[in-house]
Design a protein around this nucleic acid. Structure first.
Lengths: 210, 210
DNA sequence: TAGCTTATGTGATATTAATCACAAAATAAT
DNA sequence: ATTATTTTGTGATTAATATCACATAAGCTA
């Protein structure tokens, strides 16, 4: 744990803070598709992502979904931070897109560290900032882009996050993430294939251009 | 200034912090439609909103706009907080929807206060939290609602924020905020009027139901 | 009051996306 | 190998929204 923690966080956190994290943090391995946070959960801490990729999804009353953004190593979940500190509920769902490793930080420490460590304050503010910007990007996509553009952005973003140009996914899964229908996704994917940007297989999509 | 500050913030901030704010904060009055923050600005501090209403808008490269959310008294702009602390650029535009009063807090103090005052830490985290939730609401609207619902939500939200059931606005202005066309807004407004939810006048819309 | 400017109303048409209905192919299960 | 299940492909239809092209109305200005 210490090893991986240092790999991604030694330039972010002070040595004393790293020590504390090793002491109180709880290491956890997530298997693919494991739900880390669910709608309405009250968080008892925040996760630091050491390895892997986590998908953050919003769901409305009718059970309709939309992807908000992905987390990758070095990230944390700003939404659960707020939920943990204020004892409020979390408005999102977090699902491991692939096998991932996290360190769970107990909420008792979160405020204490804000006082003690400048690096922690920076990290928290920076995390919120990144998340706000991701949300804005999502809003940009929804407001300004058409479905074919959103789809292509989704595929390239996901390839980046997964560090893999070959994505194992179905058209239906994509439709859930983009909140549209499978038929629409299939047709637009075929279009992208004709434009030479991707290559389609069953349960698999290769992203050719970036 | 002290008076208004105490009115909305005495239950939020510790007395010592209120004292400091009075000392270093810069009071400013904004006239209607004044631009407080513009795209790409580097913030030298953060505004506390004492009175009025401020519209936060996102703009893409092509100059197309969409409303993100409104700020009301007691709020602060989380986006400029991050920008101020990290010396980064602000991705939004903030415009006074009506005459407003703010206190501008210099960025030098922001981090210092995180260490000194628990109430400040709470306020900052809480502000980020509120803003993340507003962004999620915006995403919900864009992803899950049709234009007529978005329009009605816009009108009722705005009436709330402005503390006024009678809104002085044109169809074109609304179209900009919702990122659609004036024609569409006019037609849907007429529909809402027929449903008895609003009453239309030139340059004015009365919201009848909430 | 006549002319100008801004705001609103409305038909016609085009585009995008949603929905239905079913066929065909690939894979998994028995 | 046969059957069942999952995934993908595709035509037809409908609904929502965007766009164009004017008409009308309301308020301002000279």
């Amino acid at each position: 744990m210490r090893e991986k923690l240092e790999k991604y966080f030694s330039f972010v956190f002070e040595k004393e803070l790293l020590d504390e994290i090793v002491q109180v943090g709880v290491y956890k391995k997530l298997r693919e598709n494991e739900v880390l946070v669910d709608l309405g959960d009250k968080m008892k801490g925040v996760p630091l992502l050491l390895e892997g990729a986590i998908k953050i999804v919003r769901e409305d009353k009718k059970g309709e979904e939309i992807l908000l953004y992905f987390l990758e190593r070095g990230d944390t979940c700003a939404s659960s931070f707020a939920s943990a500190i204020s004892n409020g509920k979390c408005g999102i769902r977090a699902i491991a897109e692939k096998e991932s490793e996290i360190i769970f930080l107990p909420k008792e420490k979160l405020d204490e560290w804000l006082v003690k460590y400048k690096s922690w304050r920076n990290f928290v503010i920076e995390s919120y900032n990144i998340r706000l910007n991701e949300m804005m990007e999502t809003i940009d996509s929804l407001a300004f882009m058409k479905m074919n553009e959103r789809l292509y952005k989704y595929l390239t973003d996901k390839a980046q996050i997964m560090r893999e140009t070959s994505l194992n996914t179905t058209h239906q899964d994509i439709a859930y993430d983009l909140h549209t229908s499978r038929v629409v996704v299939s047709r637009l994917l075929k279009q992208l294939e004709n434009e030479g940007k991707i290559k389609l297989h069953r349960n698999k999509i290769e992203v050719l251009e970036f």
